[in-house]
Each structure stands twice: as structure tokens, then as C-alpha cells.
Design a protein around this nucleic acid. Structure first.
Lengths: 402, 402
DNA sequence: GAAAACTTATTAAATATTTAATAAAGTCTT
DNA sequence: AAGACTTTATTAAATATTTAATAAGTTTTC
């Protein structure tokens, strides 16, 4: 059995260690559902192979002190790629979920750029990172748009002729690639490392230019039948006649996104509204958020109105999904406190109390790291059979080409 | 090992046989994910114990003819209890999912009746059925309201002091009881025996007085964190100011339910609308549906408008869940064709085409049987550990009382 | 009408995993 | 400080399950 196969064959234990560091044998038994003797057997083998290290004893809770186990950080690495519509961030993560490089940001306009450019950026990033390519076990590629994870396609951006995006990148980099929608990746990050870790049913809002949604249902990312679930920002909620960029009218996004807020602000300023926003040459979302934080009443009102509309949408979600926790995440969550009160207000007004009493609304503690962590976790989630299959496919193609 | 334990220890194979009758060893291997030799070993043991019968050969598809296996019908039975707000239906089902008694209907007003009355009806039904009580392996109890399946409680109806409803019934009948919400039971029925069988992501609408929703997500009934998921009829969708019975305004139900339709009809008649409904002393939903079928233009318009509003709600659901199939089920689905066109119209108008192209809208072929089949399937779903645990609990309590 | 291809059934060996028992090493109570 | 009680680690035996190989029927092909 080759070295990496050994890691992948015991993927349940490895995953558990990646997410919970350090762990005792009892912890791992609990997380994986395997018996303690079996877990210890696997751990000892992993120690022998150099993938796992014992590191001291944990404190006792009234019995023999348990041994602590951790993954050895530098046996393999994960490449985390986190795209939004205008830029792409990359970082390399070790087996203990630590960033071992700087987070590098590349200008990359999803609408106008080519997949080839992305591949080049990845190649450059790997080269500059100093990490040996053969030690990078997988790439988590996360991006906006209609993403079909199973097929490895993004129906919205970076379409490639006669090939899936995943195949395209994988063939050129020769590292297994896993594709996911940005909001779903953020949800995964929040579930594994965030404030809602280990909760079965979580809704994660990706507050940014639009309003993305990632759902963890029954402990797993919910993707729907074609990977298109969670199109929260386009639910038809308003009879406002406003045309959305999706082609329909009255989408949540037409009232609740930062794009809508910016449009309203410009109208307000033109109409002579008294606001510090009037002092700016260019009014964009960042400006409005900053002025709101500083206390400009009009800016606060604009954000609050948008947040209230988000809350109206969330009221629908709560009725349908009965989640334990709703997390406000994504880049916009840094001003989470601005959103919190109006959203809660809308929920209180529009939800049956029986339902709200069981649902908690919280602000992410991961900030902008959620998507990067989620992209790495996406690779870890595929440890085992799926990763093995991709490695095999790459080997076959390389073999036949070289 | 006692007789029933043997059945429950091999529950995966037994479940597969219950849902797919007859099956070959290859079928069962496929459904359960176990290897063929292992499945055959279990089957042979089940045959020896008298739970399974070989019955002839299936046709070959280009190889050796496979043996057909079925569960023996009369080793055990399931009691299916299917409640709506005003009446309760019961039937006994055999191990091949066949109704072996008449479906008996009891008048039982959920709001005004006592749990004790339900228990009495169940006792009477079992006695009259002629089926020996000790052969009834479980009761599937399905009813409207906020049902927490895990806790065994209905927060809306039939509350019992100091005890869960499941405990209450179970202690008095001494048969394991499994509780589920009516719409979720219908969804289970549709998933296992209906037009959407074996589909991973299905939304099932329970068209009746209200509009219930049961969701099958990732192949399983989705219940949310407290069993309260799927409150479709109370999503806040309209700014109509109409007060809903839930205490809020603008719920889907205020525009789309048969209750709303009936109210609108009465207003219309009073306002002199030309319609055959005017000939009736009492106008209720049944009357409107009947006249719509006969062709009364006003009745058709009323139903269509309600259906269109249901479609608006479904458009939201499609954006969020990306289901493969949406099934119109429940008692109201007998006039499914009246609903179909306006719902589809609303979906087309309010959904992103990318999403609608993957979602099929169909009418149930189970009609009013869906809930009864779902209630029986609920017991089957709990074959194995959960049923074993309940049997043990009953034995302990009986032992300590008697 | 054989040969080839295919599916199913059976068997034996290998592997995965759990259970139960015991030993080792702690904490807590009195 | 002794004894009761916990928790963890280790071992051996039992059970569950899969893999691989082979045999037994059926259909398809030529």
C-alpha cells in the first residue's frame, strides 16, 4: 500500500483529527462512531507511518489520563482558493488547519477572465509558496455562481468547452480539485470551525454584494438536486417591480443587497437628503458602511432597511427549515452589529413564536476567513474514496500524456 | 435470540424487502449497500426463521435467473393511524404493505377530543380487526400540528400532562408508537410508494384545508432542529393585512388555502357574482371544488387564484431547495389538474429558468392513501434499534405494573 | 448449436469491527 | 489513606462484512 493510500483508507479518523486538534481516543471514537480499540489500532498505525503524533496527556475527568493525538502538520498540505466576483484569494493550509503562507490576493474579474488565467495564478502561487507541489494533496476551489459540485461545473462563470472546470484545472495543475459555491463553502467553514460548529441544522448568510446562503442540514452541506439550492437572494419576495439582474422582478436582492442600498443612497443624495454621504465623490457600499459605523443617521437607516428585508427573507427560511442557528458571515459580517437588530426585529414580527424560540441569530467569529477555511475543509471532506479516485484519474492521464 | 430480535437485527434487509417486493439478492445488495454473499446469508437465515419466502425466479437479463424473495405477509402487522383535524382513519397493514382490513374512519375532533378517546378507538379497532394484538409490531401515528418526532410530542394537539403523547398511548396499548406530522408522513408515503419513489430531493405538498409541506432531502424526511420544519402555509408572503389563525398577517394560507377560497367565494356571492355557487345554502370547499370541476367559471377562477398563490410560494421553495420533483398530494390532490396549470404558471413567472428546468411538478398517484402508507412506513423506518428500544421499554413498564 | 458473454449462487479466505474482560492510572469521598 | 468509582489502554475472542475465485444457469452472437 502506497503511503498516501494509507492516509486515505483511514480517512474517518484523519478527518476527525483535522477538525478536532488534539483529540483523545475517546473523542475520536465518539466523532467517528467506531469503537475505542479499533480507533486506537488505527491511531497506532498512523503514528507508525508518521501521519499522527502523540503529544502528552490530556487532563483527566476522573480516571486514567488519556493520550492526546494530533496530525503531523507537514506531511501534506491543502491549497485553498477563495474567489469572489472581482478577486481571488489563495492560501496553503497544513494538516492542522493552520495557514502556512500569507493569504495572497489576485485581481481576477470572474466575468471577463479566462480559466487559463486562474490556472496560471495557481501555478505561480504554488511556486512562490515554497511548498513542494507533490505534498499538496488537493485544491478547494470556491466561487460564486451556479455550481454543480458533483459535475464539477460552474454554470455561471468560467465555462470551458468540452470539459468541466474541474477537469480543466486538474489536468493542468495535476492536483485533485474540488469545486464548491462560495456561500456553501462559507457554511462549511462555519460548521467546522465557527460559532456553529457541531450543530446539525445551520443556515449561514454570506453578506456581501449579494446575499448568499449556505445551509447545513442534518450535519451536511445541502446542495439540492443539481447543486443549485440556496438561491436566497433571488426568492421572489417583493411586489416592487424592480428588475433584478437575474431577469425577474421583486427578488430579495432588489431590496436587501448592498447594491440596492447603494442605488437608494444615490437617489437620496440627489434628492437632497441630509447625510455625510453627500461629501463623497463616489458613494459605494464601503462608504455607506463606514459612515453608518461613524453614526450618519441616513446611512444607518439605509443599512437597517436592507437588514430588515433580509430578516423578512429569514423569517421564511425559519418557517421552512427550523434551524438551530443562523450565522451572519461573509465579508459584510464585520459590521454584523448593524444588521443584527433589524434582522431580529423582522424575524420577531414575521415568525411564529414557536419557531423563533428555538432559533439563535449570531454573528460569525471567522470574518473573512470562513471561505478560505471552508475551501480547505472541502478537500478534507473528500478524504477517502473521492480523493483516491481523483488521484488515480490524474495519474492515468499524466501517464498517457508523458 | 428471541424471534422478533432476529427480524430487527437484520432490519436493513427487511426494510428493503418491505419497500421492494419481490426483490432479488442483487436488488437488495444494491439498496442496502451490502455485498451479495452477505445479503444471501441473511436472506437464508430469514427464510429459515420463516420471515422471508423464496418465490420462484425472476426473469433473466442475460445471465443465470435470480431467485425472488418476499417477506412473509402474516408474521407481523403494522397499525396505521392517519388523523386530520376532524377525523381519524385506521388500517392494518401486512409485511407486504397490503391493507388487510377496511380503512375505518372515526369522528375525532382534534381540538376538542381527549387522548384517552384516541386510545379507546385504537383498542376498539384492534379488537374488531381480528388481528392478534401481539402480532402488531408498531403503530404509526400521524397527525397535523407541530410534531416533535424525537420527543414524541405534538405541541399543538392532544397534550398530556407530565407525559409525552407517545408514552401515553404506548403505555395504554402496549405496542410501540411512532409519531409524525401528517404532511411529513404523506411525503414519506410518496417517497416510498408514490410517483417520486427513490428520488433524493422531493417536496410534497399536502393540499387540504391548509397547505402542508413534507420535504425529503438527501433521501430522508427533513424535520429541522425540533421537528418543526416545513411550515409552508405560514411563510409571510403577502402584504394583504389579512389576519391568519396563527396570529400573524399575510401568511401564504391567507390567500392560498381552501379556507381563504371559501371566504372569498362567500364575499363574491354576497356581492352578486354570477356563479352556480349562489344556488347552494351552504358554500364550503367541497362545493366550490365540485362546481369548478363541472365548469362554473367563477369557481374555477377562485381555485386558480389560490393555486397561483401556492405557486408563488413554491417558486421560493424551488430557489431554496432545488428539488428534483414536487408532488401535489393530500386529499385536495384528487382535483390536481385544477391546480397544475396555475401553479406551473406562477413557477414559470417567478423562478430563474436555470432552476425550473430541473424541477418536475407532478400529481400524486396515491390520492388519500399517501398518509396511511406513510404511517405504516414510519414504523418500518424504525425497524432495528429504535423499535427494539421501545419494545424493551414497554416490557419493563408492563413487568413492573403487572 | 456451440462459443462467448453475462448474471447469479456458493464457497473460502481475508479484513474490518465490535464486545467483553482485564489491567493501568487517575479522581473523589469519607 | 483506604476504598469506591472513573476513565483509558490493552488483549483476546467473537462477529460482521467484503473480496476473490469458482460453479451454475441464461442469453446473445456468430
Amino acid at each position: 500500500m502506497s503511503s498516501i493510500d494509507f492516509l486515505l483508507n483511514n480517512s474517518e479518523v484523519v478527518k476527525s483529527l483535522y477538525y478536532h486538534n488534539p483529540s483523545t481516543s475517546a473523542d475520536i471514537s465518539c466523532y467517528t462512531g467506531k469503537s475505542i480499540p479499533h480507533v486506537i489500532k488505527i491511531l497506532n498505525e498512523l503514528v507508525k507511518e508518521g501521519y499522527v503524533a502523540e503529544n502528552g496527556y490530556a487532563t483527566s475527568s476522573g480516571g486514567r489520563k488519556p493520550l492526546n493525538y494530533s496530525l503531523v502538520s507537514d506531511t501534506h498540505f491543502l491549497l485553498s482558493v477563495s474567489m469572489d466576483q472581482f478577486s481571488t484569494q489563495m492560501v496553503i493550509v497544513d494538516m492542522n488547519n493552520r495557514f502556512i503562507t500569507e493569504v495572497i490576493r489576485y485581481e481576477f474579474d470572474l466575468l471577463r477572465s479566462e480559466p487559463g488565467t486562474l490556472v496560471n495564478y495557481i501555478k505561480i502561487f504554488i511556486k512562490d509558496s515554497g511548498v513542494s507541489k507533490k505534498n499538496i494533496i488537493g485544491i478547494g476551489l470556491t466561487m460564486p455562481g451556479f455550481v454543480n459540485t458533483k459535475e464539477g461545473v460552474n454554470y455561471t462563470f468560467l465555462k470551458v468547452a468540452d470539459q468541466t472546470l474541474v477537469e480543466y484545472v486538474q489536468q493542468r495543475i495535476k492536483i485533485p480539485v474540488f469545486l464548491e459555491n462560495d456561500s456553501k463553502a462559507i457554511a462549511l467553514g462555519e460548521q467546522k470551525f465557527g460559532i456553529a460548529s457541531n450543530v446539525e441544522n445551520v443556515l449561514v448568510l454570506n453578506l456581501g454584494w449579494g446575499i448568499g446562503l449556505g445551509m447545513i442540514l442534518g450535519g451536511k452541506i445541502f446542495r439540492g438536486n443539481n447543486g443549485l439550492a440556496g438561491e436566497f437572494s433571488h426568492i421572489p419576495l417583493f411586489k416592487n417591480g424592480k428588475l433584478c439582474k437575474c431577469g425577474k422582478h421583486g427578488c430579495l436582492e432588489t431590496e436587501a443587497s448592498l447594491i440596492a442600498v447603494t442605488a437608494t443612497a444615490k437617489q437620496g443624495i440627489a434628492a437632497g437628503q441630509i447625510t455625510s454621504l453627500a461629501n463623497y465623490e463616489v458613494v459605494d457600499a464601503d462608504v455607506i458602511i463606514n459612515e453608518a459605523i461613524k453614526g450618519d443617521a441616513y446611512s444607518v437607516r439605509l443599512i437597517s432597511e436592507a437588514a430588515y428585508h433580509v430578516g423578512e427573507g429569514l423569517a421564511i427560511l425559519i418557517h421552512l427549515m427550523n434551524p438551530a442557528v443562523i450565522v451572519l458571515s461573509g465579508k459584510g459580517s464585520v459590521v454584523g452589529k448593524l444588521w443584527l437588530a433589524p434582522i431580529q426585529q423582522a424575524i420577531n414580527e414575521h415568525c411564529i413564536p414557536m419557531l423563533t424560540q428555538y432559533t439563535e441569530l449570531v454573528i460569525s467569529n471567522l470574518n473573512s476567513k470562513a471561505q478560505l477555511l471552508g475551501a480547505a475543509a472541502l478537500v478534507v471532506e473528500n478524504f477517502g474514496k473521492p480523493l483516491e479516485a481523483k488521484l488515480k484519474a490524474i495519474k492515468e492521464i499524466s501517464g498517457s500524456i508523458n
